[in-house]
Design a protein around this nucleic acid. Structure first.
Lengths: 134, 134
DNA sequence: TTAAGTCAACGAAAGTCTTCGTACTTAATC
DNA sequence: GATTAAGTACGAAGACTTTCGTTGACTTAA
């Protein structure tokens, strides 16, 4: 029954490595993270132990170096993080967030076109649903 | 120069009240917040004192009830929060965040159309800029 | 002038998050 | 067997956030 709390910043960073690399040891995650940050080995170890305890990851202890795999899927976590921001800051309006996103991190023209096309598809799908609903 | 740290959750909640109401007393902010939450008066007071200390708000002490006003503008804070999420979770890609936003909080068909139109304007503006650049 | 209400100030407690040092265990190497 | 290396476990410290009780000052009404 536990609520689906959002992972902390450090946990999210580790989840991203696990999603990218697949099941990994602490050393492997530490190696991937060290490139960006200067976190110590035992810090990453402790975080991953906590994540296992929280149910964010599971570990296989059969080998000496335990192998961790994510227990939460990327899409769900991303949706949770974005949805939380939308609720807390944008009054539940996804489109308000989109406006700010595009002014904060301008996308390339190609990306904008792709987004526009995606929106078109979404709208078309809805109109089709309306037809059938009659 | 101090980095533009992002406000905490509770601070963001208070900022939203100040942005909406304009300069307000602690009691007024508490009243607006109490409707949603059960935070005590002194909690809000303390938070607003800290916000003044951090430079997120300024206060006018001429009256007995101090009047607080936001020192950071809404657009900037929103961009900072969204931009931080984009960097941390979506590898800097705004369009990836948009995709997740729309699957997390489906927008109305009208909003989707408005967004699509906005994207069209953005793209058109860029092509025009290209023309002039020649 | 006293009593009751309103407010700011302050400190402290509790909870989280992140970090790392240290100790213990197991495996490999000499 | 002794020593080094690689791992996990554990505890604790430090920073930050949020919460609230208590105190003292000031205001208003009785």
């Amino acid at each position: 029954m536990s609520g689906p709390k959002r992972p902390t910043d450090a946990e999210t960073e580790i989840l991203r490595v696990l999603w990218e690399r697949g099941p990994s040891t602490v050393r492997e995650v530490h190696g991937a993270l060290e490139a960006q940050r200067g976190t110590g080995y035992t810090t990453v170890l402790k975080l991953m132990q906590i994540m296992a305890q929280k149910g964010l990851a599971a570990r296989d202890e059969r080998k000496r170096s335990h192998v961790y795999r994510p227990l939460v899927d990327r899409e769900g976590v991303e949706e949770g993080l974005v949805g939380d921001l939308i609720d807390r800051v944008f009054d539940g309006s996804a489109s308000e967030l989109v406006v700010r996103a595009l002014s904060s991190k301008p996308a390339s023209t190609e990306e904008l076109s792709a987004l526009q096309a995606m929106l078109g598809d979404l709208i078309a799908a809805r109109e089709e649903g309306e037809e059938e609903g009659r």
